[in-house]
Design a protein around this nucleic acid. Structure first.
Length: 651
DNA sequence: TCCGCAACTT
């Protein structure tokens, strides 16, 4: 039955039916020799010390000679099985424990459930729980933990209801698990309502003073994107620690509130003495800088990281590489990577995606190959990064090859993200039929990301038929995402199907959704300036507008043609031109021209994809004014210099 | 006696 070789094959039958007798008192001596005496009362201690040394097989061998294994002995054996990742040994040990009558010991049941969770054998954990009669809160919690970790959130919530029904009171651990269960669902159901109910239970039972419970609550709201609720809970916490602060900062950083994240970080440093930011806190702070492309802020944060001696923490270094790359400083990121003494897969992923967003697809692929040569196993995210890089650079065949190798060579099953990358890769390259075929051949349910990629490509290549198919699915999958309606309306508009445009815009209205406004921002002397079309308040707005009008007129003489077709309203040409000059990105460029010194690069970030007119306008400007202009749009970087863009007009 | 929170890479 044991999965290892035992030198005494005559023993077994009695192995699982040892005589029952009370455990003998432990001896103080530990100087036993197993080869000369295998059945002394101190076998327990010997087994335990073998477990501690990691010699599980030897320990199990000895167990077969021990008539009275103690609870402690079993405990160490269980931990050893989990540690050695051996399910078959674990199951045999479990039978041994049952046959010795220890399977009603809640202590060992808890340990066994945890062990099965570590070994990813949820069925064993469930079965054990089902036949356990003495279900202490420890046993319940262990199962909640196991199921939550594996993503069976709904099952946990069902069991939680049962637990309340049978009258077992929750403790602080129960609350952290069931809160996490709300966001750990395999299916895409929203368990926010459940989470709010549990929030109410927590308050009713007086757990609002428990830091861990309340921090988990903050994190739960954060993951649902309920920033206001998360911040409400956080502000009302009677006790906070570095983890609570980090959770709230991460909440802002992940939910498109980078300013708030930086502000809270500032508050944390100034107002608290006992909650000093750690490397985890700093990762979120760097993410906020990256989201804003706030290079100067980012450098200050980097200096802080160095002062605090946090610069050898791997995830933090990856965040630094990403921050510099997203702020346009690819070389600084590369330099940090070069100086790393130790690198993990995340460090490589960061570098690969950095080259990807700058449009260097070939280079990203080279780094990928180098990583493989160094013996680092790629993760699913590695492929998202490198496929994304291929997509930005139009490397269709290379991307297809990588997608193939991912399965065949690296044994990674493609996820929705990978399919979305492939659809994007093919779609951008105007191979829309091929992209649609990939979707129809998918073995998993194509989610919103996949259809979204297709719709985005249809927008670029104005394919109405496929766009209608994609948006039909998207309207079901994410009815509240305004972007999908806007894309479809834009496609109709470009084809001058004004009735359809009206119909889709009406749909947007009836669902009371708001089109996300195009926004651009620029950092000048450590201050961020943000622009939303013409009417945004800015003290220099008149100066900006007159500069744009002047430049536009001058550039027209040199061959610049306003791409009025991007204005998707049925208007006169000159009116369209006026609208074009109000695009946020042009305002930011003009602001940059006015407020930067000669030779200084203009760095702009835009929340949406760059429009064709802004793209050609900025190319002209870069030549006309002899300025380097770096623009990061929703997808990638555009490096404008001397009239050309690094994307080679493929974006 | 057993159990717990936050982070990175798309």
């Amino acid at each position: 039955m044991w999965a290892f070789h035992t030198p005494q094959p005559t023993q077994p039958p009695s192995l699982f039916n040892p005589p029952r007798s009370p455990p003998k008192p432990p001896s103080s001596s530990l100087t036993l020799n197993p080869s000369t005496d295998t059945s002394t009362p101190n076998n327990n201690q010997l087994i335990q010390s073998l477990c501690k040394k990691g010699n599980l097989k030897q320990a199990l061998k000895l167990l077969s000679h021990e008539p009275n294994p103690s609870q402690r002995t079993y405990e160490l054996l269980i931990l050893s099985c989990a540690h050695q990742n051996s399910l078959s040994l674990a199951q045999s040990l479990h039978s041994h424990i049952s046959e010795n009558g220890f399977d009603e010991d809640p202590f060992l049941v808890t340990k066994l459930i945890n062990m099965y969770a570590d070994l990813d054998s949820l069925d064993d954990a469930r079965k054990l729980f089902d036949k356990t009669r003495k279900r202490t809160i420890f046993v319940w919690n262990a199962l909640f933990r196991a199921l939550t970790l594996a993503g069976f959130g709904e099952e946990v919530l069902g069991l939680y209801r049962k637990m309340i029904k049978v009258g077992v009171p929750s403790d602080r651990f129960t609350y952290t698990y069931v809160l996490k269960a709300c966001v750990a669902s395999e299916c895409l159901v929203s368990l926010l309502k459940k989470g709010k109910e549990i929030h109410a239970h927590i308050l009713r039972h007086g757990f609002e003073t428990h830091v861990h419970v309340m921090t988990t609550l903050v994190d739960m709201y954060a993951r649902f994107g309920c920033v206001a609720q998360a911040s409400f809970v956080f502000k009302n916490m009677p006790v906070r620690n570095v983890v609570s602060w980090s959770a709230m900062i991460a909440c802002y950083a992940k939910n498109e509130k980078p300013f708030e994240a930086l502000e809270l970080f500032r508050e944390m440093i100034i107002e608290t003495r006992d909650s000093v930011p750690n490397s985890v806190t700093m990762v979120s702070v760097l993410q906020a800088c990256a989201a804003l492309s706030a290079l100067e802020q980012g450098k200050l944060i980097h200096a802080y990281v160095l002062r605090r001696g946090l610069d050898s923490v791997l995830p933090l270094i990856s965040a630094l590489i990403t921050m510099y790359a997203r702020c346009g400083e690819l070389e600084l990121g590369q330099r940090i990577f070069d100086r790393m003494k130790k690198r993990d897969v995340v460090s490589w992923n960061s570098l690969i995606s950095s080259y990807g967003i700058h449009g260097y697809g070939k280079k990203a692929m080279q780094i990928f190959q180098e990583m493989i040569r160094e013996g680092v196993s790629p993760s699913p995210i590695t492929f998202v990064s490198v496929l994304g890089a291929c997509s930005h650079a139009g490397l269709v065949e290379e991307g297809k090859g990588l997608f193939d190798a991912m399965r065949k060579v690296h044994g990674i099953i493609p996820s929705v993200e990978h399919y979305a990358c492939m659809v994007d890769l093919l779609g951008r390259a105007n191979r829309l039929e091929e992209a649609a075929r990939i979707i129809s051949e998918m073995r998993i349910e194509p989610g919103a990301k996949v259809w979204g990629s297709l719709l985005g490509s249809c927008r670029i290549h104005c394919n109405i038929e496929l766009a209608e198919r994609a948006s039909h699915r998207l309207f079901q999958l994410e009815p509240l995402n305004a972007g999908n309606y806007v894309l479809l309306a834009d496609i109709y508009a470009e084809a001058e199907k004004w009735d359809d445009v009206k119909r889709v815009r009406k749909l947007l209205e009836t669902r009371s959704l708001q089109k996300v406004a195009g926004r651009s921002w620029i950092e000048v002397k450590r201050k961020m300036y943000s622009f939303v079309s013409v009417d945004e308040f800015n003290p220099q707005i008149e100066k900006i507008q007159s500069l744009l009008i002047k430049l536009s007129a001058e550039m027209k003489e040199k061959g610049y043609k306003p791409q009025t077709k991007v204005v998707l309203y049925d208007l006169e040409e000159n009116e369209k031109e006026r609208i074009l000059l109000g695009h946020s990105e042009k305002l930011a460029v003009a602001f940059g021209l006015i407020n930067t010194n000669k030779g200084e690069t203009i760095r702009i970030t835009k929340n949406l994809r760059l429009c064709e007119d802004c793209h050609s306008f900025t190319k002209f400007i870069s030549k006309f004014t002899n300025k380097e202009i770096l623009v990061r749009d929703a997808n990638r970087f555009h490096h404008f210099q001397n009239g050309v863009c690094s994307c080679e007009d493929y974006w």
